[in-house]
Every structure is written in C-alpha cells, then in structure tokens.
Write a protein that binds this DNA or RNA. Sequence first.
DNA 1: GTCTATAAATAGATAGAC
DNA 2: GTCTATCTATTTATAGAC
Lengths: 217, 217
Amino acid sequence: MKSARRQPVGRKLVDADTSRARLLAAAATEFASHGFAGANVERIARGARLNKAMIYYHFKDKADLYREILRDMFGAVEARVTRMAASDDGPAAKIRGFVEAIALEADARPHFPPIWFREIADGGSHLDAATVSHISGILRVLAGIVQEGVAAGQFKPVSPLLVHGGIVGPLLLYFASGGLRLRMDRAGVSGASGFQRDEVVAHIQRVALGTLEGRMS
Amino acid sequence: MKSARRQPVGRKLVDADTSRARLLAAAATEFASHGFAGANVERIARGARLNKAMIYYHFKDKADLYREILRDMFGAVEARVTRMAASDDGPAAKIRGFVEAIALEADARPHFPPIWFREIADGGSHLDAATVSHISGILRVLAGIVQEGVAAGQFKPVSPLLVHGGIVGPLLLYFASGGLRLRMDRAGVSGASGFQRDEVVAHIQRVALGTLEGRMS
DNA sequence: GTCTATAAATAGATAGAC
DNA sequence: GTCTATCTATTTATAGAC
C-alpha cells in the first residue's frame, strides 16, 4: 500500500512542493500532451526534477498515477459546479455559472480538456468508480438546474444530456485545440488562433440559454 | 518509394478487399481505439488477417500508415461538405446540410470522431500538408455558407469558427462517446446511452441555425 | 526519501525464404 | 505479395545502496 495517501488530512495535495506534487504536475502535462500510452515515465520524472524510481515510490504504477490525475480533475470540476449551483441565483444565472465553472477549471488545470478528450476516445477505459461518480455528479448538477428552470417556467424541458453536449463539446474543443489552432494559423489558415477566451465562453453561455429558453425552433 | 500508390487511378482505395485496404481498415479501428502511440502494429496486422511485415511492405512505417488514414478521413469530409455546398439550396438548408455531412461521415467512418479528438489533443502533430489543407477547406466551406447567409440578410455575422465549434464540438462528442456512455450507463448513470442519433443531429442543426439567425441574445 | 543500475518485457522494424 | 524469424531499441518496473 505504498501508494496510499501520505499527506496530512486537509492538506492540499498538489499545491505543496513535495516530490509527490511535482510528479503529479509533471504527469498531468505529459498525459495531456501524449496520452496514457504515449506518456513516458522517464520524461515525467525529469519534468519533476526527479528520477523514475520516485514514481514507483509514490505510485503503484503508471496507470495508478494516471487514475489519480483523473480523480483530481473530475473531482475539482464536480466540486466547483456543485458549489456554484448551491447559490441562490436563478436557473439562467446558474447555466451561465455552469459554463463558467468548466472554463475556470480548464484555466486552473490546462491538462483537463485534452485528457478528457482522450478519455472519451478511449471509451473511459481508465475511469475508476470514484471518477465515474464525479462525472455523474457533474451531470446531476446540470440536470438539477434544468429541472429548476422548467419548474419555474423559464426553460423548456430539453434533455440535460443534449444541453451538456452543447456546452462541454464546444468548450473543451476550444480549450483543447490551442496548439492545433496555432499550427493551422502558421499553415496559413487565418484567424484560427485569434480568439478571445471570454468571447468564446460568453457565446457558449448565450447558446446554452437560448436552447433552454426555447428560442431555437 | 515502396509506399507509393499502387492502385490504378480512379480505383477506390479502401473498399477493395486488397491487403492494403484491409490494413487501412484494421489500422483505422486500432488508432481510433488506442491512439497513435497506443496502437500496436501486430494487432493491426492480425486485424487485417496478415502479418506485421505486410505493413512495412505497403507503408514506410507506423506514422506513414497513420497519416494516410488522416488524409483519407479529412479528405472525405472535405469532399462531402464541398459537394453539399455546391447545391442551390439556401444558406439555412446548407447549414443543416453541413451538420448532416459531418454526421454522415461519422457513420461511414466510425474511427473519424475519436481520431479527430485525439489529434486535437495532440496539437495536430501528425497532420501533413494535405490534411491541413483538407481541414482548412472544410472551414472555408462553412465560412462561405455563413457569408452567403449574411449577404442574403438571413444570418447575423457570427464568426465561422464559433459556429464551427458549436457544430463540431457536440457532434464529435456524441459520436466519439458511445463507448463511454455505455460504460456510464452500466455504472448506473441512467439515460446516458439512450439517445437517438437523428435527434442529436436535429438538435445541433436547430442550435446552429438559431445562432446564425440571431435568436440567441 | 532519493538515487544508480539493471532486469524484463514489449513492440517497431528488417532480413530473407518462398 | 506473403510469410517466419529475428534484430534492436525503447521503456516499464524493480533491486538495492545511500
């Protein structure tokens, strides 16, 4: 059980500059750039200014390290949207807040959008029970907001999963495609990288609300 | 130059049951499931009922095989949207046609959505000039439709890249996440896999049009 | 906790027969 | 065109010293 949590309870896991925290940070970058299979433990160790053996001191193996990052990522998103939805704003403001929450999390953890895309492509093969629970919690929060809006007569009863796709699809696409857009730009596809983050978020907020308020058909 | 095209000109590359076509089909499945780094040439060969050596007879190496699949994929999408946009439908119908074209291509090439997601996460590191040109062609077609609609006074001048994200993000998310939704369903997240393809496509068509017709803010 | 050295396995690529 | 056998490099993971 050497991979069990060693930090004192209540202590931030990743913020502290422990070797474990540095490994997690380096691994997040590596997994985001190369995927689980393409990630190289030697590179992760070097990125953390340590050596490979330290990875196996703190984690059971590469997959264990990866799963820890997935749990952290989705746990953070779930916590953020849950906190947001606990406010006494109306449903429309909460939909905006939901979009904003995902975007803020992508700011705080830039590895989140690419890793999420890769995990989708993998069919979720690395998700453990805790992570699945976080994801389902995120969906439940959104479904609750929609339900609230419907009850208040402000929203049409659109399927929460359709709303979710309309928010998360474009949002992750934007945050995950920074490198690609730069590349396209250099290849002469103009305007691909000239894009304001806030403008994208605001657009997605408007579209999500428009969908829910039935201004679509 | 042993990887040069061997098929007679005008012959379908993938449909024929040649060893090369079988390798391409097996490789597409393998790359979609495991990504470039995670793909295994031995598995690809077995999937094509051949052996590893045949891969190196037809292709220079694993990367060459992968790039060929990318070119085929994006070439097919570009061809389809270009053909669609050449019709004399109005701009609204063409926006619907654009969404439909992407969806039809995802039906025809199920490896397309996951591979596209992975390539985004990779920052487009495997895209060669031909593939970049296909992608930029797809964007140009969409920009043209938007321009047409604006000129006809039917659309607001929304950035084509925002429209593109609003279409392609949710659409790829839906098509790429079949496996994950099934997994979530089995984990007790109800309704994740109970979804009609046509209903999703219709929803995305409505949202895209709503965006362009200015029914959002 | 941290390191060096190394074992062990995987997997991309090639040689050469048929 | 297709195969078997093999070479070689990479890389995950561990042993064991400090």
